[in-house]
Amino acid sequence: MNIFSNIQQSFYNNLIAGNSYLQILSGLKTTLIITIAGLFLGTVLGAALCAMHYSNSKILRFISRSYIIIVRGTPILLLLMLLFYVVFARCRMEAIYVAVIAFGLNGASHIAEIMKAALQSVDPGQVMAARTLGFTKFGAFYHITLPQAGEYARPVYQNAVINIIQWTSVVGYITIADLTRVINSIGARTADPFFLIFTGIIIYLLLAYATHLIFSLAGRKRRAAR
């Protein structure tokens, strides 16, 4: 009975009092914005890097390869700080934009690798068969390579998404009030960090689970056609 009322008390102190839950929701919103926008930017850039990797130009291939090696090897937190404190320091860009750019740049290096691997796993014989049926190079890519590569990439891409969600927890370093930072500051105020950290973990878990649901729904749709 005592434990139960303790939890109830903690719940009220940490989440309800002073409208803490509103702060948490706004932190969650920030986290989601950075994730989704960063993912979008990363996917577009990643596709471009992947296209460069398969281009005929030696220079483009070199750029793509070096970009991936450098950015993938740089910790996201350092990249974030570099952009915020050095590159965009003068133009006073809002921190959240800087975060989106940082996650876009970092995500691109991973996503380009995922796309490369997925494209490589498509059987070249099937592309050849499409060409002999009269498809143009683009037609064969669009009708044969792309759908198959998409299927190969899906589970790995899902992983990349969950990774980005979790890595956004470091944006507090550049003054952004994301979910982690909000939880940290409420915890500091109420002096009950355990309860809040626990809440934070559960929210991140739910986000990962939601991602999983979205992806498996997309997969099920495709398999339902069979």
Binding site: G125, A130, R131, T132, Q148, E151
Partner: peptide, 16 residues
């Protein structure tokens, strides 16, 4: 190529 069909040793059916 539209007028030339081709059949391969390892079939090359579109697996998806």
């Amino acid at each position: 190529r539209e007028k030339m069909g081709m059949v391969y040793q390892n079939f090359n059916l579109f697996s998806h």
